[in-house]
Design a binder for these strands. Structure first.
Lengths: 192, 192
DNA sequence: ATTGGTCTAGACCATATGGTCTATTGAACG
DNA sequence: CGTTCAATAGACCATATGGTCTAGACCAAT
């Protein structure tokens, strides 16, 4: 793989490495990204990498996951913050991810999903995901939802599923359909 | 990685290679699996691999994805076949995947998800997933569900999300909670 | 100016990896 | 029995990969 170097040269080398790693891991997964790829994108020499991240690729993955998780929290806050009710916030959230999906190649997958699947962070990802659910549940409470925890869990489970389908289909539409999917009441087909 | 060789020695070399590849790709992803790993698990020499799969790893991924997809179709048929109504079938489906998740390490992720995320099959996975949705929609129709396509899409989106959460938490419970998640009616928190 | 520490720079290395190539086996068929 | 050809067997290769190591730049404090 070859990548265009990052434009932001004013950032510290450490931050450039973290951001580059986050982007590449999100795009191609842990095993699918080489440290050489990260160095090229970050425009940094190898010595700097192993100075800032003594354990190399694994440390890079930790830092990238932490940064990506914080971005997710920020996006969630920005989505629900100005919302009238929880459903409105969820709709704003879905739209935000749909836009990211369409505009940036590396947003075509959940930022920690690839690290969860093949990286050395299998155990570390659960707390990150839980933090997203928790902050969403807090918003649900604030917006007067009767079952905040359940609602937040539903949002994130469905979001991850929609995201995966969107990537498979190469189309952000499943993400935009998320609110409808959640709103639909009893589709169970239960015969009662 | 080291793996215990496959027990089934009566299978053809080609099938052993395909099965081994399916298991390893499902477990560690495309980039996370080396052809040496596949050869070791399948107990096959390199010459046989490139005889049966001239394009090497990429062909192996195609064959593995096709085999895995067929397994998914079989599981779906077995879940909805004896069901009284669609919701019952969905519950059976979730329970089947929960059991697989608990019993077999390689069933801790959707069989094509890793290939979708970092393999050379990014475009080929959509039809497979669609086939699962279609066969589920057919079952929904058969069982008298009013909106079979929507219901089938909901099932698979939610299933993939639950599966991801289950893997992150190292616990099959999210998969078992799937029916409840789908049954819950209006959790939207809409103020109307 | 000297020192001490942080950070940059990239040559260098051992190993892993995907793939090629030649030789051999074994069964079907004349 | 000899031929043929699919399949097996694994040595071999070029490159990619993650990581180490030494040298030097930069900068503050003395």
């Amino acid at each position: 793989m070859r990548f265009r170097p990052m434009a932001e040269t004013q950032l510290s080398t450490r931050d450039r490495l973290t951001m580059a790693a986050a982007r590449l891991f999100q795009e191609a997964g842990y095993s699918g990204t080489s440290v050489a790829d990260v160095l090229a994108l970050a425009q940094a020499p190898k010595g700097s990498l192993y100075h800032h991240f003594p354990n190399g690729k694994a440390d890079l993955a930790s830092a990238a996951a932490a940064m990506a998780s914080q971005v997710m929290l920020d996006i969630t806050a920005a989505a629900y913050g100005p919302a009238d009710d929880f459903a409105h916030g969820t709709q704003r959230l879905a739209e935000k991810f749909a836009r990211l999906f369409e505009r940036h190649p590396h947003w075509r997958a959940c930022p920690v999903q690839t690290l969860l699947l093949d990286g050395p962070l299998a155990t570390e990802t659960a707390p990150l995901l839980q933090a997203w659910i928790d902050t969403t549940a807090a918003q649900a409470t604030r917006l007067g939802h009767p079952k905040p925890d359940l609602a937040a869990t539903r949002v994130w489970i469905t979001l991850i599923g929609c995201w995966t389908l969107a990537r498979a289909r190469d189309d952000a539409q499943p993400l935009r359909d998320l609110p409808d999917l959640l709103l639909e009441g009893d589709n169970s087909g239960r015969s009662s």
